[in-house]
Design a protein around this nucleic acid. Structure first.
Length: 241
DNA sequence: GCGACAG
DNA sequence: ATCTTGTCGC
């Protein structure tokens, strides 16, 4: 996969912040996506007490949300968790997982913030910019900003503001549950982001994309994990004919 | 200085 | 994120 704006990942906290500052103005928050036929969810977790980072991706058809393809990647953890610098810890593994896909998705739903970030460069922006794929930030909790109380009906939302700027929304994806924090990652507007998230969330609080990715990462026996790659090799063999 | 702080 | 069973509420 061709990466845009490639850069080193072995950075100090100061260098990482400086890089975010230099990348923030490259983010596109207007709709620059074609017809969406597939949507992918990403889940990142840790093993070995945190020494190993695991990224799982599940590609679903859209709008019917049926599983099309899955991938998992593992790599040693090299960056600590620092609020505001999450992407430097998780993105390398995510890129590895994306590389394993036979077909790249038309849209990415990332765990974490997009522009709803102190420097407007949350993980969804970072992944979207590097891969040049449309991406949306879907976070389960707040990083920065404030908002009015969101009414309890599914689909209700309130603008999320920070330093006098609307950086995302608090969106009720299911009544009686805490709202999700949605913000553009790259190549998509806030309004369109809300529409896609709701269409990917037919029943539960979290989008099907995220739920499927989490299920793959946490409930898949190591023995079955191998089959994923075997299936891909066999499929690529078939594609030669 | 104090408190907040995605996953 | 991760360590972990039952349990309160819709």
């Amino acid at each position: 996969m061709e990466l845009q704006h490639s850069h080193d990942w072995n950075l100090s906290r100061e260098e990482a912040i400086a890089l975010q500052q230099s990348l923030r103005d490259k983010i596109i928050t207007t709709d620059q996506l074609g017809e969406v036929r597939t949507v992918a969810g990403v889940d990142v977790g840790f093993e070995d007490g945190g020494d190993t980072t695991r990224a799982a991706i599940v590609v679903l058809s859209f709008p019917d949300l049926q599983i099309q393809e899955r991938a998992i990647a593992h790599r040693p953890t090299t960056f600590p968790y620092i609020p505001g610098l999450l992407s430097f810890r998780e993105v390398p593994a995510v890129l590895d997982a994306l590389d394993q896909l036979q077909h790249l998705p038309d849209l990415l739903l990332c765990d974490g913030q997009g522009t709803a970030h102190p420097r407007r460069l949350g993980i969804a922006c970072h992944v979207g910019l590097l891969t040049n794929l449309p991406a949306i930030g879907v976070a389960k909790s707040l990083l920065v900003g404030q908002h009015e109380t969101v009414s309890d009906e599914k689909g209700a939302w309130q603008p999320l503001k920070h330093q006098g700027e609307v950086i995302g929304v608090a969106l009720r994806t299911r009544s009686k549950t805490k709202p999700l924090y949605i913000s553009p990652g790259h190549r998509i507007s806030l309004e369109t982001s809300i529409a896609y998230v709701l269409q990917c969330t037919p029943k539960y609080r979290l989008p099907e994309t995220t739920r499927q990715a989490h299920k793959l990462a946490s409930e898949t026996p190591a023995s079955e994990l191998e089959n994923l790659n075997v299936e891909k090799r066999e499929e690529s063999q078939l594609r030669l004919f």
